[in-house]
Every structure is written in C-alpha cells, then in structure tokens.
Amino acid sequence: MQHILTSLKRITKTGVSNFIRNGWLSTATVSILTITLFVVLFLLMMSVLTESVIINLQNRVDVSVYLKKDTKESDILKMQNDLIALSEVKSVDYVSEDDALMEFREKHKDNEIIIQSLDVLEENPLEASLNIKAKDPSQFKTIVEFLESGQYKDIISKINYYENQEIIEKIGVLISSIRKIGFTISIALTIVAFLVAFNTIRITIYTMKDEIGIMKLVGATNWFVRGPFVVEGFLYGFVSSLVTVILAFPVLYFSSPFIKKYFYDIDMFAYFQENLVIIWIILLVVGVVIGALGSIIAMQRYLKI
C-alpha cells in the first residue's frame, strides 16, 4: 500500500514535470485540443439553439376543438382531463364561451361594426374550445382520431385540424429534418475533431518512443511508464478546457447579440454563463479522455520491449 502510494506520487510528479519541460510540445498539443474542445462547445451551443427553435416551432402549432353550444362544462373538463392523460398531448387549454367572447371583443375593439353587432345579439355566439398542443406535431393525427372516434364525438362541433393539416405536417417534417441534419453535422464534426486531436497525441507519443523503450529496459513496469503520460494527458485536457471556456467568453459576448438579432431570439451568452460549470465539466471530461486515453492507446505499441 505504502509502495503504491509512493509510486503514485512519483508518477504524478514526473507527469507534471514532463508537462512543464515539454513546453513547446505541450503548448502545441494543448492548442490542438483546445480547437477540438471549441468544436465540441460549438456543437453544444448549436444543439441548444436548434432545440429552442424546435420548441418554439412546436409551440406555434396547436389544434382547437370547438364544442357545441349548451355542452355542460363538467363534460368539457372531463374531456380536458382525458386529453391530458394521452401520452402524445403536451397541454390542453380550456377557453370558455365567455373567455372566447372577451378575447374576440379585445381583438376587434377598433372595429365598431363588429362591436355593435355583438351588442345587438342577446346570446354569446361563440363556442367554447379546447386548445391542444402536442409533444410532437406529427402526433396530432392520433389525437384527432381519438377525439373523432371516442365518446366525445357528439359534443364536438368542429376540429380545426384538417384545414391546417398541411402546414402542421410540414412543420413536423421541418423539425425532424433539423434534428437529422444537426445530428449528422455533429457526428461528422466530432469525428474529424477527435481524429485531429488523437493524431496530435500520437505524434507527441511518437517523439517519445525511445524514452519509453529506455524506461522499459531499465525495469519500469508498463504502468510506471504510462502513469506520467496519463497525468500529462490529464493536464492537456484540464488546461485546454480552461482555455476554451475563457476564449468562449469574448466569442459569445460578441456573437450573441448578432444571433439574437438576425437569427433567433435567444441569448446564448446568458445561457453560457448560467450553465458555465456544467459546460466546463463536459469540456474537461472530453479533453481529459482524449488526452489521457489517447496517450495510453498511442503508446501501447512502444511498451512492447
């Protein structure tokens, strides 16, 4: 036990001292790794952006179910509850006849003719409705089928699904394309970035293959040789993730208003600040895994001596 502890201490000390003494090489490796982590950060932010675009699109799509006049409110509320229980349904808002009238008046308050004709009517001409939002727009079809075939079909006066069906489906396709394209781009970029980073580490290790051989020949075990490289790899990851986060501050500070203005209404800089710790941890883990694991894999062949 004491022996293992001593070894660990020596390995750590050697790793740190190698990191410092390999100044130029460490800088180069950290730079490449920083670029890789920037790509990872970029993808992270892109996924936040697309996810919020998607949510926004989904929120714009709803289907209203109009209910026949003189339907009992208790029936409507029961129907609302049943709808909410469906797994496809995200939310159901109840708009009573009175609410509908108030909204209608508000909307047309500048149009005297409409207001006057409303005043002439003794009865509220508007129907109560339930506004349904689906978790995914493509699921409206199922929801509508449920309504049309179920126990509620007699109290339903109208469902505004069919006139909007085309646009709803288009939005559904749009959302799934955004997801697919985003996924493909992420995978491609990630692979490229990882390959570049791993190759850099391979070259770094290659320049040390003679030293690795010498250490083995004077009696070091594989782990005693690997250890300092793992420590160094950890330091590569640690420093790169810090550099990435620090560089991301000005980059996001300046690009965030631009994104907000021309592209999409979300404050990326604020999001970044709010989630700074978790973002940094993700980058740290990715960096350390590439740095340490990459070193271990790259040096395996040189240990066979």
Binding site: S7, R10, N18, R21, N22, D210, E211, I214, M215, K216, L217, V218, G219, A220, T221, F224
Partner: peptide
C-alpha cells in the same frame, strides 16, 4: 530487469531528466 544493471553502448539516458533524475529513476522503478 530489476536484477540486472545495464550500461548501454549508446548510453540511453532519458533526455528530459537531469543526471540526478536519470540515476534516481532506476531506484524509483
């Protein structure tokens, strides 16, 4: 290899370790 001490024809010193560290390495190992 722990039992053997080897003096290599081409020295094989570790370039990034000092003289002291090169010698100490055998003992650390």
């Amino acid at each position: 290899r722990k039992e053997i001490g080897m003096i290599f024809q081409d020295f094989r010193l570790l370039p990034k370790k000092t003289v002291y560290e090169n010698v100490a390495f055998t003992l650390e190992v």
